[in-house]
Amino acid sequence: MNAFYQLSKALRSQKRVVLVTIIKEYGDTKGLVGKKILCDFSGEVYYSDLSPKLTHELTLFVHKLSVDKKITGTFQMAVDEGEFEIYLEKYIPAPKAVIFGAGHVSQPTCHLLKMIGFHVTVIDDRASFANSQRFPDADEIIVDSFENAINQINIDENTWVILVTRGHKYDFLCLEKLMERDMAYLGMMGSKSRAAITRRQLAEAGFSRENIARLNCPMGLDIGGQSPEELAVSIVSQIIAIKSGRSMGDAMSREVIEAIVRGYEGIPKALVTIVKRTGSAPRDVGTKMLVLADGSIIGTIGGGCVEAEIRQKALEVIDTGQPTTYTVTLTINEAEDEGLICGGKVEVFIEKVQNSG
């Protein structure tokens, strides 16, 4: 089974993995461009079409980079087997949101979080509030006391916790159980005066300043919202703002990977991945686009003349079967036509791919 099938399987199993692709080779080394390994941060290998020795060298390289927290991007690597340029992509499972409280603000918050790719759990001790009729978008609904529910769920550094219970008593009960847990975000609804009282109570309960500083309260961006829907926009906007500074994966790229694994069986296709960008290029490193033999595409790397040029190159790769890197430079005039501020450069890796066979 190919690397993309194993990647899809790993993500569905909530594994954190790194996909390594050789995109250039130098010297006497031949035939390794496009070869891949898929491993986790500890070095366990889920897929490799390279020699055991080179696989081992690459997993060691990944582990060193993970310690330095420098994963996604292109890197030069020289080992006994040769000198290569490799492209590394870190994949982390879809972020998890846990909403404590199933009131009116929770409903639009759940909906918006699902729209931006979160796995959402809603918790409340009232079955008349926490149910699939009121939360059709929720992945999981737990009807239990907040205290019991906290013991049932897995909270980790990929979890975003939102406290919108029906009263401060319940918010604080949750905070006492959650404050020292490692998570991506902890937010609580409340006024500035309520926030001050809560922080004082947490200090009196013995929590450190560092832990208390992690609490986002009042939760959300100050956009003047009043209605439940406006408050939900405020909350989710803050989460997006914080999340944008983290490497949490690209939902569109995951859709493309699923299309490789499960769709378009028997149709020749090429995968385009942005591996480098400078200036005002339209999309970030890691963005993917799947090009089918008839010229249709799944996903986008920015549209316009850049995408059209790269799509044509991808059709050539479908014909030849030879993976390649390709660079497009966007002049200032072209950038203006694309609605960008200035010119830029994007380098992509293009490879012919097959379904999961």
Rank of each mutant, 00 (worst) to 15 (best):
V45F: 01
Y5K: 02
Q238A: 06
F61S: 02
M183V: 10
N355T: 07
I240K: 06
L173E: 12
V306L: 01
I22Y: 01
K70L: 14
V328H: 04
L7K: 02
K352L: 12
S128V: 12
D125V: 12
Q107V: 06
S296T: 11
E258H: 03
E81A: 05
D171E: 15
R181P: 07
T121M: 06
I274Q: 00
T325S: 11
N148K: 13
R283K: 08
H104P: 15
Q312D: 04
P268Q: 01
I23E: 00
Q312F: 07
L11A: 03
K114G: 00
G286I: 15
G286H: 14
Q354W: 10
A213V: 15
K53F: 09
V143F: 15
D294P: 13
G302H: 04
A94G: 13
E210R: 14
E255Q: 10
I142H: 09
S227P: 11
I71N: 15
C217V: 05
R200E: 13
D319H: 11
S227V: 08
R126Q: 15
K276Y: 00
V62K: 04
C39S: 06
K352S: 13
N2Y: 07
Q226Y: 14
R199P: 08
G225M: 15
A196K: 15
E25D: 07
S145F: 08
L186S: 10
D222F: 06
G266P: 07
F4R: 09
E44Y: 05
V17I: 05
Y26M: 12
A293E: 13
G73F: 12
G27L: 15
S253W: 06
V272Y: 14
E258N: 03
Y264K: 14
G339A: 02
V272M: 05
E176N: 02
T29S: 05
L340V: 10
K177D: 07
K269M: 06
I71T: 12
T198L: 05
G321Y: 12
K269C: 05
A270E: 01
D294Y: 15
Y26A: 03
S237F: 04
Y185I: 15
M188H: 07
I99M: 09
G295T: 10
I301V: 05
I350C: 05
V122W: 02
V45I: 01
G103A: 01
I297F: 13
V105N: 08
D171H: 11
K64F: 05
T121G: 04
R209M: 09
I310M: 00
N355H: 04
K24F: 09
V161K: 03
G225F: 12
S237K: 03
V98S: 11
L221N: 14
I141K: 00
S253I: 11
E176T: 09
I37A: 00
V275Q: 00
N2S: 05
V291G: 02
A213H: 08
I123W: 09
A293L: 08
I150G: 13
C217Q: 10
L292R: 01
G263F: 04
E204G: 14
Q107R: 03
M1S: 09
R16V: 07
V120G: 00
L112T: 09
A314M: 13
E265L: 01
A314P: 08
